[in-house]
Design a protein around this nucleic acid. Structure first.
Lengths: 345, 345
DNA sequence: ATGAAAGCGCTAACAT
DNA sequence: ATGTTAGCGCTTTCAT
């Protein structure tokens, strides 16, 4: 008799309407908690609720979506899950969004513009309620697509990186200052020959961090010992560090633009029989569970990822719910913190 | 004139129908590449295509979904992104699914049955085309929900862990054998006092690995030195290792059921002034970029995550496309490989 | 206090 | 070779 439950897929509002003897519209009103508003009698309401419960009725969200244009889905575009930093952000965003009743459609651009463009278009076509993007390196090329959607009213927010020539708001860390502070930290500890290993050259954090690094060095009347690299990867750190040691000479300290890069540096330094921090000091970016357990625990510049995620989800949902308008929303730039471990002498 | 593009959201099949002078059904057929099949004239086809292109028409997937019950979306339920192992799997699954034109809705159960149940129900209500689950520790309690949906025809596949009393197929690694081999590896290298630090006690991999560990020890006429722990976390490894060293005595080797656990062990061992592998050998599970860069590179039992992901996506898509039926599909158990690094003497 | 009717955007069976 | 019609499951305006 209650057998019908197993067919839950087939239980529509029409079915409940027939079983309860009321019109689908009445059922809809009751189900959506609008009984009061429409002055539906207590008895009717209870009866409908009872029947709905009996058959475990759930409104088909696709149909609802088609009608009311609301999917409770947020599109997320990140460069890649291979980078623990983006994973951490994704994890926090998902936690926040989940609390608010939203699900994430996850896509990766692999830091490739075209892939990113495709992913964004795919998501846009899906009637997502909002879009969160960590732009890829050359995302400026997708600025048009993104801007257009944003102007069309799609709630879009960039995280961690921003897009030039775009009015899409963003939440980032103050990378220039962070790098400046990190570099100054190195200088204050007596280091003079400072090398910098970059992430993707044209990613906005790289550009800003490089600026900070160069400014700090200049402010102390020094010259950068070396600047190179072009990927937020272990491999990049490894190769660049080897190159520095073998071809440029031993620096006092290396400023790595991510913890993955720092990892590569550690491998290279060890391979050349040198020690961190005795021979070369090392500072990284981002924070991570693993960082405490490395052969030399890595001193890093930690980004406020909790704050970033909360702000991002908050603003996005507020916009979706009509409380604010992202077009008038001011982008945020948050400050970082140096986590002292043992890689700087 | 081409201004309409910016309003892409409002361009429906009806709009294209009016602009081209053909019926929506004809437009639909052309757009879906069925012009031939319906013997639509070349001119008509071209004209419709031209108009569609001009206005950058894209079928509204929500409406299509409502009609044809196909969303090109796969629901994914994992315990948490905080565990790098699940991240690696998610990353690979997304890559594979993306290739096939599917997107992932990502949810986390945080290894909590109720949350998992909610996530699964949420996903099921969403007209997803398939469901991939890494079951949580007590997932048996959700077996009913899952089984029902599976019997109703929802393509479901479990990964990494399986559900007891369930006919839902799964792809896992042969954890018992893996643990047996790993333990034997330790024994063959002369270790006699073997401790084992577990992950979540009731997670199937834990149960199976424990069996393998115990069997190996027994086969060599030994007794387990210690078995404890109840989380796949750094903290668990740390606490258990401390407990072993402080209260039980120094073991020859520790078998850690995940690389996160192994990390915690390393910290504890170091804190007690002992060395790996000189004083205590250590073997872990899973593989990870970071593992090469630890103070002592960790020897681990690597799971074939690429193979797992490919098989999972392959089977799921084959079922969705009607090539196979998961109800007749045989679950797979894959073998592991020991990656030698430097944590075992 | 409730129902009837229209329509979201699309596809497919059934015309012709 | 193409149009007509109905309907996926729901909400909402309008009517009573």
């Amino acid at each position: 008799m209650q057998k019908d439950k197993s067919m839950s897929k087939d239980i529509s509002i029409k079915f409940i309407s027939e079983k309860s003897g009321f019109d689908p519209s009445t059922v809809s009103r009751v189900i959506n908690g609008n009984a009061r508003e429409y002055r539906i009698s207590k008895e009717t309401e209870e009866k409908i609720l009872r029947v709905a419960k009996k058959y475990d009725y759930k409104a088909n969200p696709v149909a609802v979506n088609l009608r009311v244009k609301k999917s409770h889905t947020i599109g997320l575009v990140i460069p890649t899950l291979e980078n623990p930093f983006f994973v951490n952000i994704t994890s926090l965003l998902n936690k926040e969004l989940s609390k608010m009743g939203y699900n994430i459609i996850l896509t990766e651009s692999y830091d490739d513009v075209e892939t990113e463009g495709e992913m964004i278009k795919q998501l846009l076509e899906r009637n997502i309620d909002g879009l969160l993007i960590i732009p890829c390196e050359e995302a400026d090329q997708n600025a048009g697509t993104i801007e257009e959607a944003f102007q069309d009213g799609v709630p879009i927010l960039c995280i961690d990186r921003y897009i030039n020539n775009s009015s899409v708001p963003y939440i980032i860390t103050d990378n220039e200052k962070a790098a400046y502070d990190g570099t100054e930290f190195l200088i204050e500890r007596g280091h003079k020959q400072l090398a910098c290993i970059q992430g993707l050259k044209n990613a906005t954090p790289t550009i800003d961090r490089k600026k900070g690094f160069e400014n700090a060095v200049a402010d102390y009347n020094m010259e950068p010992f070396y600047i190179g690299g072009n990927a937020f990867s272990v491999e990049c750190g490894y190769k660049e560090a080897l190159k520095i040691i073998d071809e440029v000479g031993n620096p006092d300290a290396i400023f790595a633009m991510s913890s993955t890069i720092a990892l590569g540096v550690m491998e290279a330094v060890e391979e050349r029989g040198l020690n961190i921090p005795e021979d070369i000091s090392l500072i990284g970016f981002d924070n991570n569970v693993f960082l405490d357990y490395l052969s030399t625990p890595l001193t890093t510049i930690a980004q406020p990822i909790h704050q970033i995620s909360e702000l991002a989800v908050g603003a996005l949902i507020d916009h979706i719910e009509g409380t604010i308008d992202l077009k008038d929303w001011e982008s945020k730039m948050l400050s970082t913190e140096i986590i002292l471990r043992k890689s700087v002498a």
